[in-house]
């Protein structure tokens, strides 16, 4: 009896430590980023940091083209992943017969497991040349190619979370709507989707978070030209994202140099952006919980 209670005590403590370790790691990572990145704020004049030219070997550290590039690719990917992901989720949760559903769900999960370097390779040899001929672009290595591939990467996250949310809507809602004479489309559009709204928004946020952090694919297919995007037309031209910049330049940079600190400053910006996206997603999750409580009471 005493032995069980002792092992119980140890296991509880272990699990608790494991749970808190995530927070400790995040904190340590952020501290490290701050230590390595903040010197850049003192070494590079603020006016230069918001400049429009990134060319580190001549000490030009304008970060606007990189931030713009990341935003451009992310918006493009969201335009692909959100409609496609939501429609897939609706089909799986609401429309598909059981057999199709059992085939589709694992297929989507396999898509989620594809290594991004493979998608990048596919982009270089197939998608980029195809898009160049189809749209008569100067080059297929563009923000558009990156957006389409990243959209593909984000779709599985959007589908699985959104499908869970739709699935969680009580059956009584749909039965009541049907009893009132609603068509299938009216039920989906007017009843199920609004009821699952917060879960669906969380799905979109998670998809966006996945896209902002993606590195390998964008480095391979976007051409990495640090041009400041000026509008949606920039989608058809090469661009350079924050993640690709860090990945391409960190390997050769001298430890402790201005360039090194500037790359870590980009890392801090990325960290803050994905933190912001996750906080937004968390807000929607908590809102969903209160709604569920309201329904139950």
């Amino acid at each position: 009896m005493r032995a069980t209670s002792r092992s119980e005590y140890i296991v509880t403590r272990l699990i608790k430590a494991a749970g808190y370790s995530a927070i400790v790691f995040i904190g340590l990572i952020f501290l490290f980023l701050l230590r390595e990145g903040t010197p850049a704020l003192f070494e590079i004049p603020l006016g230069d940091l918001v400049g429009d030219r990134w060319y580190p070997i001549e000490d030009l550290f304008g970060m606007l083209p990189l931030i713009g590039g990341s935003l451009l690719v992310t918006i493009g990917a969201a335009l692909v992943a959100v409609p496609l992901g939501l429609l897939t989720a609706i089909y799986i949760a609401e429309v598909a017969p059981r057999s199709a559903r059992e085939l589709l769900k694992p297929a989507v999960e396999i898509l989620a497991g594809l290594p991004s370097v493979m998608l990048g390779f596919l982009g270089i040899v197939a998608l980029a040349p195809y898009l160049r001929r189809l749209l008569d672009l100067p080059t297929g290595l563009s923000a558009l190619t990156g957006s389409l591939l990243l959209g593909g990467i984000a779709i599985p996250s959007v589908v699985s979370v959104a499908e869970d949310a739709l699935d969680a809507v009580p059956r009584t809602y749909r039965e009541a709507a049907r009893a009132l004479g609603a068509t299938r489309w009216q039920i989906i559009w007017r009843v199920t989707l609004p009821a699952a709204r917060s879960g669906v928004l969380t799905a979109i946020m998670l998809g966006v978070g996945r896209v902002i952090g993606e590195t390998m694919t964008v480095m391979m297919v976007t051409g990495n030209a640090p041009v400041l995007p000026t509008g949606l037309g920039s989608l058809f031209r090469p661009t350079r994202t924050m993640t690709a910049t860090i990945a391409a330049e960190m390997g050769e940079v001298a430890n402790g140099s201005v360039h090194y600190h500037a790359l870590f400053l980009i890392g801090i910006l990325l960290f803050l952006i994905s933190l912001g996206v996750n906080l937004l997603a968390a807000r929607f999750v908590f809102r969903q919980r209160t709604r569920a409580e309201r329904v139950l009471s």
Binding site: E58, T139, L141, M219, A225, V227, L228, R237, A248
Partner: peptide
């Protein structure tokens, strides 16, 4: 003089060869 900002910076020699092989503009 600097490289024009719209110069594509590719991470490997293979990337450059692949794009030149495919693209008559490159």
């Amino acid at each position: 003089t600097l490289f024009s900002p719209d110069t594509l910076l590719l991470p490997s020699s293979e990337g450059i060869t692949a794009e030149v092989r495919d693209n008559p503009n490159a």
